[in-house]
Computed example of a mutant assay.
Amino acid sequence: MIKVSHLKKSVDGNKKQVLRDINTEFAQGELIGIVGPSGSGKSMLLRCLALREPWDSGDYIWNEDKLIQGGGKGTYKLRSRFAYLEQNPSLYPERTALKNVLIGQVGQVSAIRRFTGMVRSDDYMGAMDELEKFGLLDKAHVKAGKLSGGEKQRVAICRALVHGAKFIAADEPTMGLDPKSAERVMETLGQLCKTQKTTIVTALPIELAEKYCTRIWGIHSGELKLDIVGRRLTSGEKRLIDLA
């Protein structure tokens, strides 16, 4: 069980509160969609859950591991479990999909490994296995700059898994994609939750959250207003978070 207690987050020297006393619990293997208007705090919540931002206050517990107590930064030794996927994944455009999976996220690998791409054979096979699972085996040796938006998103997911992620926070992973590509990305996320018990929290348009997610969080003005399991939102619930 993953538990978030009294998460608060401010920016601009604590002048602007972005997240206001967020409290929630969720289990491994859930696919949770976050919905809410622009500026409501969705992206910051994802970054905090993925240990990409220090918390002003609050506790973060993953099973028996206390990641954050009373605010601050997450425990560094556990950070590899957490991946944060931006709207436009940071890939090396001149390197292949396979190399991008192997050498990790931009700015997070050593200079030698980044530029030589040196890897162990078991790393190589693990990366190829992930690419195959998500229909990208034929793109393994294609440069990332030539991939479609949906393919780049799936490469970023493969990269996170190869590097040990058990929790993925994805910030609007379908933005700018055509309907078919968006559907493929959402199916990929759902498959991860079901088969590998990966926990995924993602900001989405409400129609995709209702179609694919097992749970929906509604956020407005930095507050978690809704936590709905297994159904669509009512008209009243949509109005509550200004999405009606």
Rank of each mutant, 00 (worst) to 15 (best):
Q28I: 07
L131N: 01
L208D: 02
Q153A: 03
A170Y: 01
G33I: 05
A83H: 02
I2N: 10
F167V: 11
C48F: 13
K152V: 10
D227L: 03
T96F: 12
G135M: 09
G145P: 05
L233D: 05
R232F: 08
A140P: 02
L7F: 06
A83M: 00
A50Y: 11
Q196Y: 04
A209Q: 07
L19C: 01
T75F: 04
M128A: 00
I241G: 06
G36T: 05
V201H: 06
R47M: 14
S235E: 13
L204Q: 05
G104I: 00
G72N: 10
I2A: 13
L51N: 04
L224F: 03
S38K: 02
G13I: 10
R215P: 03
V4Q: 04
S10V: 09
T96E: 08
F115N: 13
G39E: 13
L177A: 06
L189R: 08
E172W: 05
L224E: 05
G104D: 04
R79W: 01
I34G: 01
K152A: 12
V201Q: 06
G70H: 05
Q105V: 14
T116R: 02
E86R: 13
K211T: 00
T116M: 05
D178Y: 08
K133R: 15
D65Y: 14
A27W: 05
D129T: 15
A160H: 03
T198A: 11
P89H: 10
G176A: 11
S121D: 15
D227Y: 09
A97P: 04
K180N: 13
Q191T: 11
M175E: 15
K42R: 03
E132T: 15
Q153W: 12
L51W: 07
I168Y: 00
D129P: 00
C213R: 14
D59R: 02
D65E: 15
N63L: 12
P205L: 14
G164V: 00
G149L: 08
T199D: 10
N88T: 14
L49S: 03
G104T: 09
Q191V: 02
I34L: 10
M128P: 00
E223G: 08
E207D: 15
L240N: 12
P37V: 14
A140C: 03
I216N: 01
R20K: 14
D178I: 08
I219G: 04
K8G: 11
N14F: 12
K16W: 13
T96N: 06
M186K: 07
R215Y: 08
W62E: 13
A27I: 07
R231H: 01
V101E: 09
K194I: 08
H163W: 01
Y124G: 00
S221I: 10
M1G: 15
K77P: 04
I200L: 08
I112S: 05
W62A: 12
D122Q: 01
G13S: 03
R120H: 12
E25Y: 15
S40A: 15
M175S: 15
E30F: 08
K143H: 13
G218S: 01
R79H: 13
I206Q: 12
R81S: 09
K73D: 13
G135N: 10
G117W: 03
E151G: 10
S148F: 06
K225D: 09
S110G: 15
P205A: 14
